[in-house]
Design a protein around this nucleic acid. Sequence first.
DNA 1: AAGGCACAGAAAAACGGTTTTTCATTTACT
DNA 2: AGTAAATGAAAAACCGTTTTTCTGTGCCTT
Lengths: 352, 352
Amino acid sequence: MGSGLKRQGRVGIRDVAKAAGVSPTTVSHALSGKGRISKRTRNRVIEKAEKLGYKPNRSAQQLVTGNSGLIALYAGNSSTPTGRLTSALPDYPFIMNIAMSASVEAIEQGLSMALSSQTSEASGLLQMGVDGAVIVDPEVKDPVNEEFFEAGLPVVTVGRVLGVPEEMNEHWVDVDHNKVTIEVLEHLKKRGAKRVAVISAPVGPSYVNDSLEGYKAWCESTGQEPIFHTLEGRDYEQETRRVTKVLLDEKDRPDAIFCHLQPVSVEVLRAVIAEGLSVPDEIMVATMSDDNKVNNLDGSGMPDLTGCNLHPEQVAREAVRMLASLIAGEEPANRHVYVPAEITARESTNRK
Amino acid sequence: MGSGLKRQGRVGIRDVAKAAGVSPTTVSHALSGKGRISKRTRNRVIEKAEKLGYKPNRSAQQLVTGNSGLIALYAGNSSTPTGRLTSALPDYPFIMNIAMSASVEAIEQGLSMALSSQTSEASGLLQMGVDGAVIVDPEVKDPVNEEFFEAGLPVVTVGRVLGVPEEMNEHWVDVDHNKVTIEVLEHLKKRGAKRVAVISAPVGPSYVNDSLEGYKAWCESTGQEPIFHTLEGRDYEQETRRVTKVLLDEKDRPDAIFCHLQPVSVEVLRAVIAEGLSVPDEIMVATMSDDNKVNNLDGSGMPDLTGCNLHPEQVAREAVRMLASLIAGEEPANRHVYVPAEITARESTNRK
DNA sequence: AAGGCACAGAAAAACGGTTTTTCATTTACT
DNA sequence: AGTAAATGAAAAACCGTTTTTCTGTGCCTT
């Protein structure tokens, strides 16, 4: 009996057909743009369909097209630092953001989405008959990507897969971390920074490379000597405190610190203030990953943190949309999409 | 064309029918237990189906039963403290855990799942034709629950909805927070605690009430005077430090502190140690929410934190399973499910 | 003027199940 | 024994699309 009600008034293709005075076939053709029909008829059908609020029945479509309508979202892969305290957390808000937006977009595309973090689940989902996958922040030679590639299923990555031939990672959505890094650096310079240090996330995801490249290029063009540390250990909090101490103890101390991960920036902020230095007057601090719900530190006695809006919602939507095209057998409008990002200046870099 | 391959060798109901020497109808009946067939035939069919690895085609099922096969998971509702620093984080690992397990279980139940946090999206998903919802940690008189109730769609909550008549929250899965709270208190007592204080999460979700009730009952039975603070502000970190200070400054200082939220416990740990007190010898600390990947603090110079394994994966699976029954029109085995939880003792309460 | 050819659209055949109906058998009852 | 009821299983109808095949037209060729 199902839940019973059988979606009473739902308009079907026949209703549209009747309203437009044509056959169901014609409606299908008109809407998919596949058959041969006159422009006039097509427009009339489209208009009627819209007026009636026609939404094709997913199940019926999937039944005939033969795909499952299910996609997998892999997020939070094994290169994410885990195992310690809040060290698993840096990605959570970002991933939740991505996951939720992706989920909504999937529905809009007539797909549904399975969340997965475990690499080990890759083959599981494959066997359940997923039609494709989105992989967020793939690692170098990402194994999930490889598995899907070998199965001949489409994949869109958020960020690029490093270390593989181009044909294994044809489709991706990315933020221009290089550019936004430079934007931050320019911002810091404009606010008076003379020496900017960078504390980078562990290498693996493409954004780390991109950002560091941006930093190096900027150093070259401005003549500053590059100063950067890459976090590697498992306890990023302790590691951050250590690195910050090293930076602050240098004889030619940096006067601005740019970190990739937001929680790292917060830890830096703490360490700097604990050291008796003022932010932003003596040291400016900025982060690349950012969550506007999270970076606003007021009430904690610390200045609000300057960050970058990386538009995770938009990234997720673009990725799902691209994957939907691929599943439909179309070549997507673009195989690579860059989503713009911009700095969100706040108190921690607001040197007068 | 779809992605093309059309799932080549997939076994269908007809294949099973042929193998068992019966009609497709009979196979359907045998597997769903709906028609009238002899036990012998049924068993034969089931055996054959299993041997062939038959999985009914979701799309086909949904097409005929008329439901969309889509469920919504609402997690991270508005009562979650948000807006500040890591204050949005307490729930993330828990929610991600829930979301991923739920997603997997949904697939196994032939459903797929849309993730949603925004209360405002409730009606959106309703209109997309979801068949039901799981709501995690619903707030008092939860509005999403109400909307689904009014639409006549099934809902299973993780935790109970307070402030509504029973018929509006017939189905839920919960952890026995009352019991596990007492278990923790007993543990603390056994380790020598004389005065146990509680720092509770903001009221709203049922688990807060349950745990506090457990605490009060325990106090009554042991003759201890209850000492508890409920976090309310938006900046839980600052609030936690303040409350901890108050507790430590009391003339009859508590020698153990039990917190609901894991990040709060960590902050307490910090504050206690900063105050020059030793954990667990002078003060023991324990948390209710726990993530074994996260509570292991070694390397940070702090003792590992005693917590409770609330089995979020199991909770999620039970909830989805129950919802699946409801959607199928069956009365689920139980309308209320309690998932057991147990203490995970670690260093922070290991007083010799 | 007959044959071929695009063109627009309709009819019919999947897709893979479930549900309802129908049909043969048994079994039960008077 | 004769009819009614219960049982077991098959046949047929249906779910809402897409895809494939088919039917008219009107126009162009030769």
